[in-house]
Amino acid sequence: MSPSALTKPQMRGLLAKCLQFHIGGVIVVSLETADFQQFSVADPREKAYADFYRNYDSVKYFEEMTKAGIFQSAK
């Protein structure tokens, strides 16, 4: 084997080349994670709050808590 048969290792720009590859991967993974969070957590939670407050009557709920004795100052 002659010494010229071996390829020289890349010494200049190695960090930039690796970072370019990894930053692209990080951006893709973070966008996928954000989409997963939006569709699996945020949207169902928003729908649950909307369903709860659609028929929520705060005066009725206050009267029920007052009758149960939760509020000592309200009679």
Rank of each mutant, 00 (worst) to 15 (best):
S2N: 11
S2L: 09
S2K: 13
S4L: 14
A5T: 12
L6H: 09
L6T: 04
L6M: 13
L6K: 12
L6Y: 04
T7A: 08
T7K: 13
K8W: 00
P9G: 03
Q10S: 01
Q10I: 14
G13M: 13
G13P: 01
L14Q: 13
A16Y: 04
A16E: 06
K17D: 13
K17Y: 00
C18G: 02
C18Y: 05
L19N: 10
L19E: 06
L19G: 05
Q20L: 04
Q20W: 05
F21P: 02
F21I: 04
H22V: 06
H22I: 11
I23H: 02
I23L: 15
G24N: 04
G25E: 13
G25V: 12
G25M: 03
G25Y: 01
G25C: 10
V26L: 06
I27E: 05
V29G: 15
V29L: 15
V29N: 15
L31H: 07
L31E: 09
E32D: 05
E32W: 15
T33I: 14
T33R: 14
A34M: 05
A34W: 10
A34D: 05
A34H: 09
A34Y: 03
D35Y: 03
D35P: 02
D35T: 09
F36H: 12
F36E: 09
Q37G: 08
Q37Y: 07
Q38D: 11
Q38E: 12
Q38N: 11
F39T: 08
F39G: 08
F39Y: 11
S40F: 08
V41W: 03
V41N: 01
V41P: 00
V41M: 04
D43I: 13
D43W: 06
P44T: 05
P44A: 04
K47T: 07
A48Y: 01
Y49W: 08
Y49K: 09
Y49M: 09
A50N: 10
D51A: 10
D51C: 01
F52W: 05
F52L: 05
Y53R: 00
R54E: 07
R54V: 06
R54C: 04
R54Q: 14
R54K: 15
N55A: 07
Y56E: 11
Y56P: 00
D57G: 11
D57Y: 04
V59H: 06
V59R: 12
V59F: 08
K60Y: 08
K60G: 14
Y61I: 13
E63P: 01
E63A: 09
E63R: 11
E63D: 12
M65F: 07
T66A: 10
T66G: 00
T66R: 07
K67G: 00
K67R: 11
K67N: 13
K67T: 08
K67D: 13
K67P: 01
A68S: 07
A68T: 14
A68R: 01
G69V: 10
I70Q: 14
I70G: 11
I70E: 11
I70D: 06
F71P: 01
S73G: 00
A74N: 12
K75Y: 01
